[in-house]
Design a protein around this nucleic acid. Structure first.
Lengths: 133, 133
DNA sequence: CAACGCACTTGTGCATTGCAAGCCAGCACG
DNA sequence: CGTGCTGGCTTGCAATGCACAAGTGCGTTG
């Protein structure tokens, strides 16, 4: 691997420093999605070649695991590994910042308040159940 | 502005969903840099046209403020606004994740420990003084 | 006032991305 | 068994983004 520096932020950006990767991780981590077609139908409208490339990359870097569906063997299931789940705190801080700085945010102040008052509880709930919108 | 969705993560990625923007914010927020030439000399080696474009964008979006240096009026000083400083928690979580997942990380476990045991204190210190490496 | 440094701007070529279309394997149905 | 449909990609091509090099204008310095 050809690294730009040993800064952990630079390291992280080499994984998700683009317009799509974190949205895929959001969908897997918080939105309860796990199939290719579900991931393809996000509000933002990711292109299919980009999604395929990102999933391959995330799998290769150990962020997600790919499994065959036991019911329908055409279908794949994508799941976060531990390293992937560990990105939830990053997502939470981004959501808090976005909610505080975007007038039209879909996330309200109650999420922000919970992140401030019961951060550990929130993180545990998200890791177990996702956002449950 | 042409938004992809009202998800706060998508909103945030429209600001820093690329390979360079967060590194610029890191240098301003944590590395104590404020001049164009300092920012240009990061370990990662950002190109000058990219840096100029990102600074203009960050200023327009209210993340940084551009001031003239009072000593040398050729020189500009770039400083984070409140909205910019509010990105420090995001940076911290990324650093923690990077330090935990990169074998060759330049940040050691003592940062991670402090983030777990005294998060509020760490955030206050970083906001006031940066990383002080 | 000549030379230099700072903060850019412009130009060019290559790499990455976005969008549309096509492809193939695995079901589902008759 | 054939026909069609669905899920998960792959390919082709245009558009965008990035890297590298060079040049510009203004302010400071010798």
């Amino acid at each position: 691997m050809n690294r730009r520096s040993h800064c952990p932020i630079s390291f992280a950006l080499e994984l998700f420093g683009d317009r799509w990767t974190l949205l895929v991780i959001r969908d897997l981590a918080l939105m309860g999605k796990s199939s290719y077609t579900d991931l393809l139908c996000s509000d933002e409208g990711i292109a299919t070649n980009i999604l395929a490339e990102r999933l391959a990359r995330l799998e290769q870097r150990g962020i997600i695991r790919k499994e065959r569906d036991t019911q329908d063997r055409r279908r794949s299931r994508y799941r976060l590994t531990e390293a992937g789940l560990d990105l939830i705190p990053v997502l939470v801080e981004i959501i808090v910042w976005g909610a505080n700085n975007d007038d039209e945010s879909a996330i309200g102040p109650e999420f922000v308040r919970e992140a401030e008052t019961d951060r550990a509880g929130l993180l545990a709930r998200l890791r177990a159940d996702g956002l449950q919108l």
